[in-house]
Design a binder for these strands. Structure first.
Length: 196
DNA sequence: CGAATTTGACCTGCGC
DNA sequence: GCGCAGGTCAAATTCG
């Protein structure tokens, strides 16, 4: 039985590796790729601070792809873009259906270090750091204000160590429906900047 | 009793 | 410079 993979930013894969600095074109290619792989997908855009996310819905799946390019929305009809800075962290957002603001088990160990109320949202944001001493990856968890059934998990950075847990959801006893995950990524996408 | 979480205080960046 | 909002710190508290 195939379970969807956990939202682990280290294992995100995208079939195309971009080396160009033209992020606008690259993001367009991602969208075209999605269009090819999904039959007439509908795209709906949501913004979360300085990044842009596209929810991709097709008869077969719903997934969320995010841009690490720090796009900014100026208004509802015009998208203002800025190029990703060289030292901007890699950011991925995962949208999952969940009753509680709990972090899905992504195989890494996290330490919670803060919680803040967010202006305009009745729900707080939770701040986590990777427990590994030399790893600076952060994770933010907040409820999607436009759809409170969903929780947005934002990963910032990339782990510099292997996951302490290498086994994901591979038990026959694992009951996916009990987790109530609706929008788990069945495909995930990576934007690869020029390799450091 | 050590580890993890909570929570108020503090820091920082940004807009005015 | 000031105020606000988001992000982080760290002492206190809770949990296993």
């Amino acid at each position: 039985m195939n379970y969807p993979s956990n939202p682990n930013p280290n294992f995100i894969d995208f079939p195309i590796t971009f080396t160009s600095d033209d992020y606008d074109d690259a993001f367009q290619m991602i969208m075209e790729q999605i269009s090819l792989e999904n039959h007439s997908p509908t795209l709906s855009w949501t913004s979360s601070e300085k990044l842009l996310a596209a929810e991709v819905t097709s008869p077969l799946q719903t997934s969320l792809v995010t841009s690490p390019m720090s796009l900014e929305i100026e208004d509802k009809t015009e998208i203002k873009k800025r190029k990703r800075h060289k030292d901007d962290p890699i950011i991925h957002v995962f949208k999952t259906k969940s009753i509680e603001e709990i972090a899905l088990d992504d195989g890494f160990k996290w330490r919670k270090y803060g919680k803040k109320p967010i202006r305009g949202s009745p729900f707080p944001r939770h701040y986590h750091k990777c427990s590994n001493a030399n790893c600076i990856v952060k994770k933010k968890i907040e409820r999607d204000t436009s759809n409170p059934d969903y929780v947005l998990t934002t990963y910032e950075g990339r782990h510099n160590h292997p996951s302490p847990s290498v086994v994901y959801c591979d038990s026959d006893d694992f009951d996916l429906t009990s987790l109530n995950i609706l929008s788990f990524q069945t495909r995930t996408y990576k934007y690869s900047h020029s390799a450091p």
